[in-house]
Nucleic acid binder design. Structure first.
Lengths: 244, 244
DNA sequence: CTGACGAATTGATCTGAGTCAGTTTTCGGA
DNA sequence: TCCGAAAACTGACTCAGATCAATTCGTCAG
């Protein structure tokens, strides 16, 4: 696959039409391809001078640890996503990132990234632009946790994850492959594992959604969207705002 | 005050050392100064082709409405903050923004902003970079709501707001002026107005913090930080990553 | 000074989600 | 094919925070 056709290039191209030169710099990011096992920390809270990563395959989750031993999962990264960007921009990381599956990434050193941003600022813009879209997802997540009950919250979150995977060709209206365990889902939604289990049973018994090891199946997409008050439009974007 | 000394220029300068030309473009943003009364919507959910605003004075809050009539406040904007950026980047807004006080803003039209981004990409970078820092705050907010109980959550949130205001010279370790009503605080923290009232009483009775109309007073900063598990370091940043 | 309206405050009661303490299922490795 | 560990599942009980229903306070217009 040419770099121009990679998930990342496709994503960035949605914001800024990239020139040959910019694509070449992007290509340079992919020098250092690596594979990691599940359960490895790629980014650690408080650590200095870390690299960023571009996720080519597999899933990663970003989370914060709390003193009580609990954690809050803030976001999941799927293929095509950048990760550890903030830990480069601010020189120190404010969160952890852990591989959930076997993962393939391109590691981009802090210096390379900053150099690239300095020489091809339009590319920098595209990357930060994409980060800004990811923020929209974190905001939706915030609303889930703040103002939706466990049932709506779970439904909404799994729909959103599906919408996001559809963008990179990894999901459909029928469902998607999902390596989350129930307790990870709990940590993402601010619930306990026990309660998530009961909520998933309810969703199953109501014929709305089946969450099984490695697979999310939308049994009744329409009713699910209605229950969760899910807005299907907010991820759309019709063309780059900045032309070459 | 020269443009180079404005809160926004100061903030952006922390990321990217701005050139004369870039400062001039920033200056251009301030052509269209306006004043709004409290309770006015600056940005409306779902509206197309909106302007962005630079907040010069007063407070604004960004929130999402839910079908049940409840709302979740996602963030507050204080002087020096950009707002409505995402509604320009994505052509349509995913949230509302309402003035909380009398407010002074500079309106920057969608087209002017995109043109400026195209001609001075380093400035664009600085703006998006600042947006990325704001996201760190939304993440902290997410953790508050997901994994802290009402007391810790309220304490943590008010400490964070204080830290942020200190950056723009509007707060100290003693406290800060704060135009939030109890029910706004409730909408931000995912609680009810009734419960926030009880929590604020507890904080007052424990001699930790006093929240009164228009004023937050830290009665015992140290103990408050400890209760809330507040990290005082995460807002620090020592110099621009990109030089002129 | 007075009425009125919104914000703050309080008490009583209810309930969604947490906690505790298991049992059962799944699945990879010997 | 059997074993052990982790994940999924379940029931009984508790509690933090919601809900409901007043009352009080503050402030601004008349």
């Amino acid at each position: 696959m040419s770099i121009a056709g990679s998930p990342l290039a496709r994503k960035l191209g949605a914001f800024v039409a990239l020139t040959e030169k910019e694509l070449a710099v992007l290509e340079g990011f992919h020098q250092c391809r690596q594979t990691f096992d599940p359960g490895v920390d790629l980014v650690r809270q408080g650590q200095l001078g870390q690299s960023a990563f571009i996720l080519a395959d597999g899933w990663v989750c970003s989370y914060k640890l709390l003193p009580g031993g609990t954690r809050q999962i803030v976001d999941f990264q799927v293929p095509g996503d950048f990760l550890g960007l903030r830990s480069v921009l601010f020189r120190t990381s404010d969160h952890n990132a852990e591989t959930m599956t076997t993962v393939e990434v391109s590691e981009v050193s802090s210096n390379d990234l900053i150099d690239a941003f300095a020489t091809t600022p339009r590319l920098a813009m595209a990357v930060l632009w994409a980060a800004s879209r990811d923020e929209a997802m974190v905001v939706e997540h915030l609303v889930d946790i703040g103002r939706r009950n466990a049932l709506e919250r779970t439904a909404h979150f799994l729909l959103e994850l599906g919408a996001r995977l559809k963008l990179v060709g990894l999901g459909t209206k029928e469902g998607y492959a999902c390596p989350l365990s129930q307790s990870m889902l709990a940590d993402a939604l601010g619930l306990t594992g026990v309660h998530i289990n009961r909520v998933l049973r309810q969703l199953r018994e109501k014929g709305l959604l089946t969450f099984r090891t490695g697979q999310v199946i939308f049994d009744d997409f329409e009713r699910l969207v209605k229950l969760a008050d899910f807005d299907t439009a907010y991820l759309d974007q019709d063309g780059p705002l900045l032309r070459q």
